[in-house]
């Protein structure tokens, strides 16, 4: 069965770059699944997401979104299917949370149009889902990092997409918020969304289960069920570190931990 996203032999190189950031990448994103994308700093995880969002143009291979080559998809089409939660959102003006989330409905609004009552309703639903009612009239720029991310997730949900892309959602958060986010990802999955999440913490991939992908510095991607991809040898090859993977009885899951210093 074909996934929502099918990446086939995708290459990407920056116009001024010397190495391929993505080298013959093949990947599948399926409904109701979490795909964790791991890789060292600078490997190209964000670039991969940007290519999937058509923010960057791939230099080889093809990306199919719902069976259609992404070059033929207009921005609105993509946005109707794909939600995006970026790593950082520098916002110049103090929009309220409500307005911010409402912008997620842009894929449904006509040119020279305004959001309809339905759009507003969906936005409110997304806010309720994320439990953000009490701050919905606050200015986005005055929220904490964690709150901003939750608002961004609400915005992504508001569009009623089929897949949500997260770009390193936990990197700036404390442990408590990290856990919240990971729980939210799991819930989204259970609601039927496909989730793609880049992270540099292999333990998150183990926590979420389903599928994982490993992007190395040469731009090559290995993907498959998490247990197959997140192994000690593969991690060592990519991260050049002796990470240990053990099964933890109390939590009934595999965990990834640092070795002793």
């Amino acid at each position: 069965m074909n996934g929502i996203y099918e990446l086939q032999g995708v290459d990407f190189m920056y116009p001024s770059g010397r190495r391929k950031v993505l080298n013959d990448v093949t990947l599948s994103v399926r409904e109701g699944e979490v795909l964790s994308i791991l890789g060292p700093n600078g490997a190209g995880k964000s670039t991969l997401l940007n290519c999937m969002l058509k923010l960057l143009k791939i230099t080889g291979g093809r990306i199919l979104l719902r069976g259609k080559p992404i070059e033929q998809c207009r921005a609105k089409e993509i946005a109707a299917v794909v939600g995006y939660v970026p790593q950082s959102m520098p916002v110049a003006f103090p929009y309220t949370v409500e307005d911010f989330v409402l912008m997620g409905r842009a894929s449904r609004v006509s040119v020279m149009g305004k959001p309809t009552a339905l759009d507003r309703e969906k936005a409110q639903e997304a806010i309720a889902l994320m439990g953000l009612e009490r701050i919905k009239t606050a200015a986005f720029t005055e929220l904490s990092g964690g709150e901003q991310q939750q608002v961004a997730i609400a915005r992504a949900i508001a569009a009623e997409p089929q897949v949500i892309l997260f770009d390193e959602p936990t990197s700036h958060l404390d442990f408590g918020n990290q856990l919240k986010t990971l729980r939210m990802v799991k819930q989204l999955c259970e609601r039927g969304f496909a989730v793609v999440m880049t992270t540099h913490n292999p333990d998150h991939a183990l926590l979420l289960g389903h599928r994982a992908a490993l992007l190395d510095r040469e731009g090559r991607l290995t993907s498959g069920p998490t247990d197959e991809v997140v192994t000690e040898e593969k991690l060592k090859a990519v991260y050049e570190a002796d990470l240990k993977i053990r099964f933890m009885e109390e939590e009934k899951r595999r965990v990834c931990i640092y070795p002793a210093l």
Binding site: R66, R74, K76, E77, A80, V81, R108, S110, V111, Q162
Partner: peptide, 15 residues
């Protein structure tokens, strides 16, 4: 999705 695509196409032409 197909419905949305139709609406978008109409919107595109109108645009």
């Amino acid at each position: 999705y197909n419905e949305q695509a139709k609406i978008t196409n109409k919107g595109e032409n109108a645009m």
